[in-house]
Design a binder for these strands. Structure first.
Lengths: 354, 354
DNA sequence: AAAGTGAATGTAAACGATTACATAATGCCT
DNA sequence: AGGCATTATGTAATCGTTTACATTCACTTT
C-alpha cells in the first residue's frame, strides 16, 4: 500500500453503524429518553426494574453519551486546562501525573497548555478558556491570563481556577504550594551550619513570585546566621540545565569565589556541577552545590545532590482535588501548604580551611 | 476571607452578561446566523462589505463560537488524544512539546492520556475516544486500545490514529519512528570498535516491539563483528532510573563481568552508572556505559553519556503533522523514519588490557 | 425579452443530550 | 371515600451552531 489518500472514518454505508444515541437506548428499553438520561445522572430516582432494563439496553447498544450534546445542554465540559510555562521541564512531569490521576478519578479530562514563553499562546488559552472549552483550570505559571477584564470590570475568565506552585498575586483563587521561603531559609542555614560564609544564590527568573519568596528565605537565613546579603552573589537563571551551565562559567570567572552555591532548581544545580567538573573544580571538596525540587536525577547525579524535596505528585493531586471541589460546588481551603524536606546527600561538604 | 463555600461562576443577575452567541452577532450586523457562520468558515463566499460588517460585530460583541454546539453539529472536536505509557518519564516531555506545538498551530488542542501501567485507564481512554471526544489520537504506547472490536468485527475505534515511536504490529496506521534496529546496531559496533568483547545489554520491557527491533540491532552488530550473542548478558529493565540501579547491582554480583553495558534508555544508563560509582567501579575506566535517547541529562551526567540521539521534538512534530493531515483529509506516508545519531561523549573507553 | 447562470443571502432542520414541567399511578391519612 | 403526598415516567423546549436547500437579484446569452 502506497501513500494514497487515507481516511479512517467509517464509510457512510455498510454495517459499522453510527454510535448509539440515547434514542436508541430508550426505544430498546421502551422508556423515554428522559428516563435513560436519569438512569445515568441520578439512578436513585428511577425504579429498580426500569433501571435494570435501561442499563441492559445501554450495554447492548454500547451507548456512550455524546459529550458535545451533553456539554451544549448542561454547559459543562468535564475538561480541565493545565497551564504551565514549559512542558519540557522535568520538574512538571510528576506534578502533571498527580493532576491527571486525580482528575481522571473524578471523571475529568486534562488539556495541557504549554506556554513555552509565547504570549501568543497565553492569549490562545485565555480565549480557549473563555470560550467554555473547559470547566476549570490549574495555573502553574503565576499569571492570570494577562488579567484582561471585560467591559463590566469583571475578570474575563470566570470559571474556577487554582494556582499551583506559584502564587498569583492579587488573584482571589486557592493556592497550592510549598513554603518556599521557609525551605529556602532552611537550606541556607544548613549551608552555613556546614561552615559556608560565602554562599552564591542561583535563582530562577527574578520577577517570579515564587522566587521572591525563596530569595527572602535565603536572606532570612543569612540574617539569622549573622551574615550579610550580597547582591553580587545572586545570579539569575531560568531553571534550565543550560542556565546552570552558564552560571557556572560566570562563577568560575570571578576572583572572589563562593564556597557554596544554592540553586533554586535541581536542573540548574546539575548544569552547574557539570561546568565545575569540566573546569576541574571538585564538588563538594572545592565548591558545595545545593539544589531545589528533588527531581529523580538529583539522587543519581554525581555527586548525589543535596536538595529540597518537593512533594510533586502530591502537589498535583492537591491542586486537582481543590479544583474538583470547586467544580462540584464544594468549598476548598484558600491556601494549601505542603511540606518540603531537606534531603542531605553528597554535594555539600565543609569548605577547606574551616 | 475564610474557607467558606466558593463558586466562581458569574452570578445569574448583574451585568456580566452571558457570552455572545451567533444570534447576537447576526442581529448586530443585520444578517442571518448563516452568514455569520460563513464569515468564519469560508470568508470568500460572502461579499466584502457584509464580511466587514460581520467582523466588526464579532469584534464588538467579543463573540467566540461555542465549541460544544459547533462540535455537536459538525461532529468534530478539534481535540487530539495523546496516549503514553508514563508521563513521568523524561523521554516524553520533549516529544509532547513537539506534538503540542504542531497541534496548536493547526488549531487543535491536546488531551493527555497517561496510562501509567493501568489497564483500567486504557479502557477509559478507549471509551473516551470512541465517545467522540477527540478527532484523532497519537499512540505512544504500542497498543491499539486493547484492539477490542465491535459486533461487526470493525475496529472499535475508527478515528485517525498515528503510532509514534513504537510501531503497532498489525495496525494499519501511519508510524513515526526512528530506525531502532540500525541505531542499536551502530552503537553495538561502536562499542566493539572500542575494543569491547563482552557487552551487556540492558533492555526495556522485552515484549515491547521497539525493544525487539533494538535487540535485533544488537545481535546484528555482534554478528557483524564476529561475536556471539549471549542471552546471559541481556538484562530486562523498564526504562526507569531505578531499573538501571537494579541492573547495576545484578551486574556487580556477577563473576564474569562485562566490560561495557549498552542501555536502551539514558535513564537506565544513568541509574546504572550511579550503582557502579557507588560500588567504586569507575566509568569508563572499569566499565563503559552507553545509553539511548539523548535526554538533556545525558550531556551533563558524570561522566557525560555516550548515547544515541533521538530527535524527540521532531518526532512529536512529525506525528502531529501526520495526524493533522489525516484529520483534514490529506494523505500521509505510511511510515516516517527519522534519523538518529551516535553521540560520543565520555562514558565509553577502551577496556583495560586491550 | 425570455431563459439561464451565478453570486449572495436567508430559512429552518438538524446535531444529541438535559431538564422543567406535566401527568399518571400508588399509597396514606382522616 | 376523597384528597394529598409521593414516586415514576413522559413530553417537549432548549443549548448554539452548521449547512442543505430555497430564494432573490443582477447579469449574460440567445
Amino acid at each position: 500500500m502506497s501513500t494514497g489518500g487515507r481516511k479512517f472514518r467509517a464509510g457512510s454505508g455498510e454495517g459499522a453503524g453510527r454510535a448509539a444515541r440515547i434514542q436508541d437506548v430508550a426505544r430498546l428499553a421502551d422508556v423515554s429518553t428522559a428516563t435513560v438520561s436519569r438512569v445515568l445522572a441520578s439512578p436513585n430516582v428511577v425504579s429498580e426494574d426500569t433501571r435494570a432494563r435501561v442499563l441492559e439496553a445501554i450495554a447492548k447498544t454500547g451507548y456512550v453519551p455524546n459529550p458535545a450534546a451533553r456539554s451544549l445542554r448542561s454547559q459543562k465540559t468535564y475538561m480541565v486546562l493545565v497551564v504551565l510555562p514549559n512542558l519540557a521541564n522535568t520538574f512538571f512531569s510528576k506534578i502533571l501525573s498527580g493532576i491527571e490521576e486525580t482528575l481522571f478519578e473524578a471523571g475529568y479530562g486534562m488539556i495541557i497548555g504549554d506556554l513555552d514563553g509565547s504570549p501568543e499562546k497565553e492569549a490562545h488559552f485565555a480565549a480557549f478558556t473563555s470560550a467554555g472549552r473547559v470547566d476549570g483550570a490549574i495555573l502553574l505559571n503565576g499569571h492570570l491570563f494577562g488579567q484582561s477584564r471585560d467591559a463590566q470590570g469583571e475578570p474575563a475568565i470566570n470559571i474556577p481556577l487554582v494556582a499551583l506552585c506559584e502564587a498569583i498575586p492579587g488573584a482571589n483563587i486557592p493556592q497550592i504550594e510549598v513554603d518556599n521561603r521557609a525551605a529556602s531559609r532552611r537550606m541556607t542555614q544548613y549551608l552555613v551550619s556546614r561552615g559556608h560564609r560565602l554562599i552564591a544564590y542561583l535563582t530562577g527568573p527574578a520577577d517570579n513570585v515564587l522566587e521572591k519568596e525563596r530569595i527572602r528565605g535565603y536572606r532570612d537565613g543569612l540574617r539569622a546566621e549573622g551574615l550579610a546579603f550580597d547582591p553580587e552573589l545572586v545570579i539569575e537563571g531560568d531553571y534550565t540545565i543550560k542556565s546552570g551551565i552558564d552560571a557556572g562559567r560566570d562563577l568560575l570567572g570571578r576572583s572572589r569565589r563562593p564556597t557554596a552555591v544554592f540553586c533554586t532548581s535541581d536542573e540548574m544545580a546539575i548544569g552547574l556541577m557539570r561546568t565545575l567538573h569540566s573546569a576541574g573544580v571538585r564538588v563538594p571538596q572545592d565548591i558545595s552545590v545545593a539544589g531545589f525540587d528533588d527531581i529523580e536525577f538529583a539522587a543519581v547525579a554525581e555527586p548525589a545532590l543535596t536538595t529540597i524535596h518537593q512533594p510533586r505528585r502530591e502537589l498535583g493531586q492537591a491542586a486537582a482535588t481543590a479544583l474538583v471541589d470547586l467544580l462540584q460546588g464544594r468549598s476548598t481551603p484558600e491556601r494549601i501548604r505542603l511540606k518540603t524536606e531537606l534531603v542531605v546527600r553528597d554535594s555539600v561538604a565543609e569548605p577547606v580551611g574551616t
